[in-house]
């Protein structure tokens, strides 16, 4: 499994799009932190120190799904289409392949968000551990969706399109469903991560639990798949 995690992690770092996303995260974190550290009076008016992480929080909540989905939508179906999966599946267990892919992507985003929070911590002079965990939980959810999408939809050309649609639909529906009183949207609220992230406390980890559930479904699907 280690080999798959390593390969997935490294291949994400090799891609131009991924580098652009990391730079974007770092620039936003740096710029926002610098702005708040130069305007300390804003911290008293708002919610104290946590305003430092507001920019990265907004970035992840609005664009996190889109970034994750667009970078990794073909993480499994591309290997199946190119038949490189045949080398993997004859050497490693099917579970190790799916979990390895999940963890490889997760590690990439962990490093990306950690770097951003490190920049913020340097300016703020404090660590935002709980905010960091919230973002990680949210991204784990997005990675779960991505893995499942890449398994259920067989053609990478199709997932390219679906990834963009989902990447836009998830934040729109997520935020809308929190405010809405419609029955359908109330259900959507409990399925998407926004409600839990907003609620905070131990609810923060519910999206991560959803990610684990999606991973289990992905394992079950992949176990029955002819490659």
């Amino acid at each position: 499994m280690r080999a798959i995690i390593e390969k997935e992690f490294k291949s994400l770092f090799k891609s131009f799009k991924s580098i652009a996303v990391i730079l974007f995260f770092l620039i936003v974190s740096f710029a926002a932190s610098k702005f708040f550290s130069n305007n300390l009076e804003l911290l008293q008016q708002d919610q104290g120190e946590s305003v430092y992480v507001s920019s990265i929080r907004a970035l992840v909540m609005f664009f996190g799904s889109l970034f994750v989905l667009s970078l990794s939508h073909d993480v499994i179906n591309r290997e199946v289409e190119n038949q490189t999966i045949r080398f993997l599946v004859t050497k490693s267990s099917r579970n190790a392949i799916v979990i390895g892919k999940f963890l490889g992507i997760f590690l990439f985003w962990f490093v990306c968000v950690l770097s951003s929070f490190t920049v913020i911590a340097l300016f703020a002079g404090q660590l935002f551990v709980f905010d960091f965990l919230k973002m990680i939980s949210f991204l784990a959810y997005a990675i779960g969706v991505t893995i499942l999408l890449s398994l259920v939809v067989k053609k990478p050309s199709h997932t390219t399109f679906i990834a963009i649609l989902l990447g836009i639909a998830i934040p729109v529906l997520g935020i809308w469903s929190i405010a809405s009183k419609q029955f359908v949207l109330k259900i959507v609220k409990y399925v998407l991560p926004y409600y839990y992230i907003m609620k905070g406390s131990y609810y923060t980890f519910v999206p991560a639990c959803f990610a684990a559930l999606m991973l289990l479904i992905a394992l079950a699907v992949f176990k029955r798949r002819d490659l």
Partner: peptide, 13 residues
């Protein structure tokens, strides 16, 4: 899988 080596047909690299 631990005791076999496989050269699959038509696999890409």
């Amino acid at each position: 899988k631990k005791m076999i080596g496989v050269m699959p047909d038509a696999a890409n690299y």
